[in-house]
């Protein structure tokens, strides 16, 4: 009974004061992490690809951005966004969105590095082959290189997601009531429940990130990304990769022809 009393705030840890007030607790951590990863993914792809560009005026700013952000602690980025963006831009944004913005800035740089590593890891012959079939650079990237690169990226992507999820605990510093902040609030308000608060905090983070990393491990095994030697293009679902196969089976109607006829219409 005493133990149950200790954990009576469990709803506050999981959901915050949700039905009455704002969403908080562990759910907010998950929302922040998912939102950030969805938003920053596109910036990451853009930055990572631009960093590989041979044009200096594209490459250098991207490099500068990535290296600067990667060398700055997340707390510093959060402070910049939360305290000084209102000074500079003259607008006020809510705590939640400034947390999302700073996490996005932080995550984009790391994702850019993951994307860059993934693109580099695709064998060089792939790009050469794609270019020699007459594809434009953009189409070669879009249909040949990036699908393969994304497969290579999956493990590092997931492990970054775990670390991002843990990093969402940092935003408690600006008063977002996520799990860490909830635990601190409870342990200060009711000091006799301090142990329970820390157990809840630890368990909450542990369960979520452990299950994601376990999922990642299983996914890694299933995709078998690391053996590029045995990489079979026909296993890839992208239709463009199926092209040579179709040409062998159906001789008169290759997808290339249909493309052209669609154009003339």
């Amino acid at each position: 009974m005493d133990l149950l009393e200790q954990f009576s705030n469990i709803k506050f840890y999981l959901l915050g004061s949700y039905p009455q007030g704002e969403i908080g607790g562990l759910l907010l951590n998950i929302i922040l992490a998912v939102l950030t990863i969805c938003l920053s993914f596109w910036f990451g792809v853009l930055l990572g690809y631009s960093r590989l560009s041979c044009r200096l005026y594209i490459k250098l700013p991207c490099m500068a951005y990535i290296e600067t952000v990667r060398a700055t602690p997340l707390i510093m980025i959060i402070f910049w966004i939360y305290f000084f963006l209102p000074y500079i831009a003259g607008t006020n944004i809510t705590v939640f969105w400034s947390a999302v913005a700073s996490l996005c800035i932080y995550a984009a740089a790391y994702q850019a590095e993951i994307v860059r590593a993934g693109i580099i890891a695709v064998p060089k012959g792939q790009l050469e082959a794609a270019l020699s079939t007459g594809m434009s650079r953009y189409r070669a990237m879009r249909h040949v290189i990036l699908p393969q690169a994304f497969r290579i990226m999956v493990p590092s992507f997931l492990s970054f997601f775990v670390s991002l999820f843990k990093d969402t605990s940092t935003v408690f510093i600006i008063g977002v009531i996520e799990l860490t902040q909830a635990g601190i609030i409870i342990s200060q308000r009711e000091p006799n429940k301090m142990y329970a608060a820390y157990v809840c905090m630890g368990l909450g983070f542990w369960i979520v990130s452990f299950s994601i990393s376990q999922l990642a491990r299983r996914l890694e095994k299933r995709i078998g990304i690391f053996d590029l030697e045995s990489y079979r293009p026909d296993a890839c679902r992208d239709e463009f990769m199926l092209l040579p196969k179709k040409k062998v089976t159906g001789e008169e109607t290759g997808p290339d022809m249909s493309c052209r006829s669609a154009d003339s219409r």
Binding site: V162, K166, D167, S169, T170, F172, T180, G183, I184, S187, M194, Y195, Y198, M201, G202, F205, W206, S209, F210, S213
Partner: peptide, 22 residues
């Protein structure tokens, strides 16, 4: 490794400051 890797460092800092002396 499994325990400490899956919980943020911030938690451990707070833990050692508030709970550990107790």
């Amino acid at each position: 490794v499994e325990i400490f890797r899956n919980i943020p460092g911030l938690f451990w800092i707070l833990f050692f400051y508030f709970v550990f002396p107790d």
